[in-house]
Design a binder for these strands. Structure first.
Lengths: 258, 258
DNA sequence: CTATCAAATTCCATTATCTGGAACTTAGTT
DNA sequence: AACTAAGTTCCAGATAATGGAATTTGATAG
């Protein structure tokens, strides 16, 4: 559980933020001390610096919370994100075509971070998902993005995964995942067959640019009781076309050279 | 324009993030070099470290963009934010009562960072505002929060403001602002009379806890063509009651001691 | 295709900053 | 009031950041 060993001063500081972020309940000093093997003095000063920068906040009971400055930076990160901006109209289009939820996610080490979400049904609050990170191995976008990675990178990342069972369809070992990835490499389509959340499945396609080492994906997500598997299958071409259209826009807008 | 002088290694790194965030167009290395007086070598390594931590991303044309990791951290920061969680039901309630847009913002130096937003009319995308930072001197929430600051803090912060005219009602000097703050201190209500955006005005009340040095505010925002000033005036008690209710909840849930 | 100039990246001896063990202070408990 | 656990401060030593200069890369023009 101890997530440590990031090098450099900045790395240590980010480790602290990660530790605070990954606790479900706001940690106190001792909790962090136990979790991150940084010595007392060091940890204390790292925390003080983070508080100084508004990246961390102290609660009245001496527990720590991520600071509002992160929200400010993230708002800019979201608005300024080039890939997201380019993809946006395409996501809206496929959202209207399918009337289901569309996700745009980018690969970040062994997680998928969602950059955007278009709802078929507009009742759910948007921001509840933006920025959320999910494991690669049990999401459509994650597997799609993995499938376009060069072999050595794929190996390296899979070896770093710590599998956790989310549903009884979750692929829980590296070999099963590798087998599925090689299929996805042929078909160009990835499925999440209720592997992350029971009752939810999706079709996904990769969106990437190898020479920019950029790996992402889009997906159409639906509840399985309402939208059966064969409907997802019918959406395959649409998902692939949308992915292709986004990649084409990227090539054009970013210039054809690497 | 040069925003520099933050001390410590982490401070320098955050300066870089701030610089990238505050440029409207993604800056390249030289742009940052000019903006932040960090020497070439130093800046270069700082940038590399930030990229390593996924807090910054390089675009194909060597310009820099804030990284997806910020979105991940911000999603946690938002979800875990204690104040926001406590305020949420109250915001919903006043949102339903007024059928207008409700903002929850927290004071961060001389800016207001919006923590939450409840729409009267649900067509606008939620996340477009979360995390957005606005100047203190021309927003209702900003002025409300300033009004509950101790005198010395108030002075100090006002002296740091660089006023910029947003509309022709914007208060553009410290004295005008101080005069208005002292009125707000009596009434407990702040207005933004189209001072930030033309056609938009709002009523706001402070939400704070001096002994926790926590300063924030809530506001009801409306387009002036649809909702005239005297309607805002009628909402004064409601806004104050909501603010009071949030503060009471905070006292109860955080424990009465400082 | 090659020359030219600007921008980006690397290098490394110096030095400031971070490190971390231990002593100290504060808060909560029996 | 005494005790225990949690949080904070201190400072000599080690490490990682600094920053000027040299090198490489890349864009633009001839």
């Amino acid at each position: 559980m101890a997530r440590n060993g990031n090098s450099g001063t900045l790395g240590k500081a980010v480790d602290v933020l990660d530790a605070v972020a990954s606790e479900t309940t706001a940690p106190r000093f001792t909790d962090l001390l136990a979790r991150l093997d940084q010595p007392r003095g060091t940890l204390h000063r790292n925390i003080s610096n983070l508080i100084e920068e508004q990246l961390l906040t102290v609660r009245p009971d001496h527990s720590y919370e991520l600071g509002p400055k992160l929200l400010k930076l993230a708002a800019r990160a979201w608005a300024g994100n080039q890939f997201r901006t380019i993809a946006e109209p395409h996501l809206k289009a496929i959202g209207e075509a399918t009337r289901e939820t569309i996700h745009l996610g980018v690969l970040s080490d062994i997680e998928v971070i969602y950059l955007d979400k278009v709802e078929g049904n507009q009742t759910v609050r948007m921001h509840s998902q933006i920025g959320n990170a999910s494991p690669v191995y049990c999401t459509g976008v994650g597997k799609a993005a993995l499938s376009v990675l060069p072999d050595d990178e794929l190996e390296a990342r899979i070896s770093r995964i710590v599998f956790e069972r989310h549903t009884n369809s979750t692929l829980c070992d590296g070999d099963a995942l590798k087998t599925e990835i090689s299929e996805i490499r042929h078909t160009g389509i990835a499925y999440d067959r209720e592997e992350h959340e029971p009752g939810i499945h999706c079709v996904a396609a990769p969106v990437y640019s190898s020479n920019r080492s950029f790996f992402a994906g889009i997906s159409v997500t639906a509840p399985s009781f309402r939208t059966p598997m064969d409907q997802l299958t019918k959406w395959e071409p649409l998902v692939q076309q949308t992915a292709a259209a986004i990649m084409e826009d990227m090539e054009n807008k970013l210039g054809p050279r690497a």
